[in-house]
């Protein structure tokens, strides 16, 4: 029998959505899922290299948080498991796929790869491959919004930053240091923990003295919430509240999303430690199926509309692969380009 934390309840009133919103969420989650499935296929076919960390199962977090923000204006900061955050932030699938193919048309011009996706245009700060190092960078972006507003008098500088990271990261000093500074200076930032229970092979409960991560906010005087990370409406509702607080200058929020990765840590991970029972219990809570069921139940969508979205996304993903395959390799004469700002 797999022991799980009791799921937090959310208020259904705050989770009301329109048909249009529901379909946007569904499309974003389907894009994340189909894109990652295609990555696995490409990796196993030898088209993609290096460490590739897929996001399957966690889509409700990326979609729920980023769709509660203003994608393209607000900042997003990710980890090595960054493909889907990039997609939710609006980086075109073809640019992400081309990057994974190492091509010159990739969002990082083939210099970054899977764990180093960036897009200044879409306010994606990265793609950070080491644990915790993106949190200070995100905190700096949030500080910048406050600085522009208060020092430079820019009233339009109300951008919010979301920093995504996993349960393993919450035992790292940069997590605590940045929670402290963000609360101290009331920075407009969301610290979003994707607690998928496992840091590669280290079970969360074996790594931390207080497994309920959201409680760690309280010592910094910061609101901390736990939310069902398999429920996009619940994530979105909490994120919306946090975004409102952040924009109003009321400071940061820690959001712990209880979620699960449906694949191994990376495609190189044999994934031998997680039990079959545990996996099956979580597979049964697939966040995409959950949203689909809700949309159908509430008569916000019918099967044909959902199928149409899936078909549209499959085409986008297939085209992304085609774009990646057909794109040029980076020019060897530009090996040294981008070392310095003038290049």
């Amino acid at each position: 029998m797999v022991q799980e934390r009791a799921l937090p309840k959310i208020q259904s009133a705050s989770a009301q959505i329109t048909k249009e919103e529901g379909l946007v969420l569904y499309e974003d989650m389907i894009l994340g899922r189909f894109f990652e499935d295609k990555c696995a296929e490409m990796y196993y076919r030898g088209k993609m290299f290096g460490f590739v960390h897929l996001y399957n199962g966690q889509e409700a977090v990326s979609t729920g948080v980023i769709q509660a923000m203003r994608p393209g204006e607000d900042y997003v900061c990710s980890t090595y498991r960054d493909h889907v955050h990039a997609l939710s932030a609006g980086v075109p699938a073809r640019e992400v796929m081309a990057e994974l193919f190492g091509k010159a048309t990739g969002c990082s011009k083939g210099r970054g790869g899977s764990m180093h996706l960036f897009s200044a245009e879409h306010k994606l700060l990265g793609g950070f491959a080491f644990i915790g190092e993106g949190i200070p960078v995100a905190t700096g972006a949030a500080f910048q919004s406050k600085y522009r507003r208060e020092v430079m008098g820019d009233e339009n500088a109300d951008q919010v930053t979301a920093a995504f990271f996993g349960d393993g990261t919450t035992n790292n000093g940069q997590f605590f240091e940045c929670l402290n500074m963000a609360a101290l200076w009331k920075l407009p930032i969301l610290f979003v923990v994707e607690n998928n229970k496992w840091a590669i092979g280290m079970a969360h409960d074996r790594a931390t003295s207080q497994p309920e991560i959201y409680k760690k906010a309280s010592v910094f005087g910061m609101p901390g919430y736990e939310v069902d990370g398999m429920d996009v409406l619940a994530v979105r509702a909490i994120a919306q509240e946090a975004v409102v607080r952040a924009r109003a200058g009321e400071g940061p929020t820690l959001i712990e999303c209880l979620t699960y990765r449906f694949r191994g840590h990376s495609l190189a991970d044999p994934d031998e430690l997680r039990s079959k029972d545990e996996k099956e219990a979580w597979f049964a809570r697939d966040p995409i199926k959950k949203l689909a069921a809700y949309l159908l139940e509430q008569n916000l969508a019918d099967q044909s509309e959902l199928k149409a979205i899936e078909k549209k996304i499959q085409t986008i993903v297939d085209e992304a692969v085609e774009f990646g395959v057909n794109s040029p390799e980076p020019d060897a004469s530009e090996l040294y380009r981008y070392i310095f700002a003038e290049d």
Partner: peptide, 15 residues
């Protein structure tokens, strides 16, 4: 918090 405030500066510089 040297590592964190240095990272903050990186984030501020990026933006």
């Amino acid at each position: 918090a040297e590592n964190s405030f240095t990272g903050m500066a990186v984030g501020a510089a990026m933006t």
